[in-house]
Design a binder for these strands. Structure first.
Lengths: 168, 168
DNA sequence: ACGAAATACTTTAGGCTTAAAATAATTCGG
DNA sequence: CCGAATTATTTTAAGCCTAAAGTATTTCGT
């Protein structure tokens, strides 16, 4: 057991353990970022080249695809984890392009309902199919029997981070 | 127990397996993105609030911190996985703020060497310490004995994606 | 040596992103 | 009922990011 050192550390871990944990945490974060950046960059490139589309636009359509009756506009920032102000011009353009509609609610004139059009659904499904194939191509070399394990780890990681953000 | 598995050729997979793999791949990607977005958003927020700094600026300093003699400017886009044009204004501002210097090479006047100043190093170390602590706080609820496993999985994933990108 | 190709970097145009302030509509306490 | 707080959304300012085009310099083939 270590002797009492000057400032009592928050945890009972000694310096070496603490350092090792710091390094492991940093490594996890850097790997996570590298994987995401790599995949995201390639998906973005293909969206642009194949469909002249962007991922944020696709993400909005993906949310609406599962909602036949549309969504309250305010749901989108929550689900997509982006700021509300961010969505305004993206939704604007999707409306202009005829992929979605935006109609004020009769019950509360502050609220707007966004809903995919038939054209939007058709376009989305075509892109979603390619998106799945691209992902399959990018992840083809990762052993299929380890996906579930990785998903579990990432779920737990996400839960841990969420909890940590909840606390303060 | 399953027999030693040969890599199942795509053609041999039946429809259900194929579908299941697609779903698993999509799930991995969505979890990866969610974890990264969550952590990145919080780190960015803290950089801004505590230091009035941004992550891309920090990332540049982090690269230079390990290079006492500086780096060829062109190394930065490669290491940080961003475009060269992106870095120009970021480096400009770090120079203006006195954190780094940018000097043309004598051997090749196209090349510039960037190097951290004493002031830059001091500022970086202060921020890096907080950065480590923030990460530790965010990841505190994830079991420490599972970090290494997760790092391994992410390394393999990154390798797989890199290989897939190499091919064409 | 000389022009073409390659390399290092910057500029430009366009889109994403956030935080903070602004606008508009609703709700709620007294 | 009425003013204050709350809620939904947009606007603004500033920074990040990319692709593509532009500039300057070096290298390389002949």
């Amino acid at each position: 057991m270590a002797l009492a050192k000057e400032p009592t550390p928050v945890s009972a871990k000694n310096g070496a353990d603490q350092e090792a944990e710091y390094r492991a945490q940093t490594r996890v974060w850097l790997r996570l970022l590298a994987c995401t950046t790599l995949i995201e960059g390639e998906l973005r490139r293909r969206f642009r080249e194949e469909f002249d589309f962007t991922m944020p636009r696709f993400d909005v359509l993906a949310q609406l695809d599962r909602e036949p009756s549309g969504l309250v506009l305010g749901e989108l920032p929550k689900r997509l984890m982006v700021s509300a102000g961010n969505l305004t011009p993206i939704v604007d353009r999707l409306v202009e392009d005829g992929y979605i509609t935006r109609t004020p609610s009769n019950l509360d004139r502050r609220v707007q309902i966004v809903c995919m059009t038939v054209e939007g659904r058709k376009t989305f499904r075509r892109m979603a199919k390619s998106h799945g194939a691209w992902l399959a191509e990018l992840l083809a070399d990762f052993p299929a029997d380890r996906f579930d394990g990785l998903i579990g780890e990432l779920d737990d990681l996400k839960g841990a981070v969420r909890d940590a953000l909840q606390k303060p």
